[in-house]
Design a protein around this nucleic acid. Structure first.
Lengths: 204, 204
DNA sequence: GCATCGATGTGTACACTGTCAACATGGCGA
DNA sequence: TCGCCATGTTGACAGTGTACACATCGATGC
């Protein structure tokens, strides 16, 4: 679905020299391309073409192609975060350890449902995200992990270790399942088995 | 260090039309390039140039550039495996859980010491390795995990879950530390803290 | 000892990539 | 209404993987 060219003031779909909302459209096209073909297929020229625009136009909105890809990655993180928050709403009131598991399952589910998009998510962030205040998975985990601390005395080292265990095991599991375990049933068994044990490690 | 061109029968360093051991040399050059510049710098043409050979020569030894990169990745895995076996020799006789930790520490140490080479290791294997019978980290972990099973009754699901927990947490921790925790002291604290908890989860 | 053959190298070409400089367009404020 | 300037286009350059035709040379058979 190539984004239609549209001028800001023009109501119709008439082609005009100026696109009107190119930046958004580029990220949209990048997301679609990443979903369909993975990192290999995400290319400045192809994204531009999908928007019906020349490649050089991209550089009016992003300092480099890597910044555009970073924006697509950020978009993917936001999609993931949305699902996490939705799951957390449903799990409100349940113990912290259960909610941590919910977050982990969300992370892994996204990785397995959209493996190519996920490969963007797990790229090291070369470019700082535009908005610092958007839903952040790390902060989310931290908030829940803090509830595991005894009231009044927060052990920062313990908090950090628990956060790291939660994030590491979820990320590692997602990657390994994606790359080496194609069978959905085997995946489900392993997710359950590993997260059970991570739960034990988190409460230790 | 560009590999010197040498003929099979010629003793001296004299340049000859045929290289003599190009395949090895290409992997060597790829490894050096990966160490120095990471995946971005690992390019068919640059590897060939480092060997003093035209780019097309590569295709006499590898069906594609990706296969060459896969060979470099396999090389890196072997380097990692060597360190693991060395550590395991030193830890012979100690309980399985300690040896698993040794393997995990080796994995993480390599990732942090050679972050760029490690990014090849953790690439999904597009090409099956040439030799199936070489030292394999997964088999290594499996052998140790099997020792945790009660004698006589092996629960395959439990074995799989323990293997997965060990591998996932080590890989995830390595990646996250590499990308987001530059400080060596913080890294050491987190490694210890997380691996302690993984140990608890493994024995559960 | 000599011709030949196959393995392994070279050169050139093509389509693709990111990126830049110079130029074109047209919406919006003065 | 005019002109500015944000935003687009075109064309170019260097670098990428890869295929094809050709060159070279060690080994092998006579």
């Amino acid at each position: 679905m190539a984004t239609e060219r549209r001028a800001v003031t023009t109501g119709g779909g008439r082609r005009s020299y100026h696109h009107g909302a190119l930046r958004e459209a580029l990220v949209d096209a990048g997301e679609a391309l990443a979903r369909a073909e993975g990192l290999e297929g995400v290319t400045v020229r192809r994204i531009a073409a999908a928007c019906g625009v020349s490649a050089a136009a991209v550089y009016r909105h992003f300092p480099s192609g890597d910044h555009l890809i970073a924006a697509v990655a950020q978009r993917a993180r936001e999609i993931m975060a949305r699902d996490m928050f939705a799951r957390l709403d449903s799990a409100a009131g349940r113990p912290p350890i259960d909610r941590l598991r919910e977050v982990g399952e969300s992370y892994i589910a996204f990785a397995l449902a959209e493996p190519r998009l996920f490969s963007l998510v797990s790229m090291p962030m070369t470019t700082p995200p535009d908005r610092i205040d958007d839903p952040n998975a790390a902060d989310l985990v931290r908030d829940i992990v803090l509830e595991l601390e005894p009231p009044g005395e927060i052990d920062e080292a313990r908090v950090a270790a628990r956060m790291m265990l939660a994030q590491s095991s979820a990320h590692g599991l997602a990657v390994i399942l994606r790359d080496f375990v194609p069978d959905p049933q085997a995946r489900a068994m392993l997710i359950a088995g590993v997260l059970d044990r991570v739960g034990v490690g988190l409460e230790a």
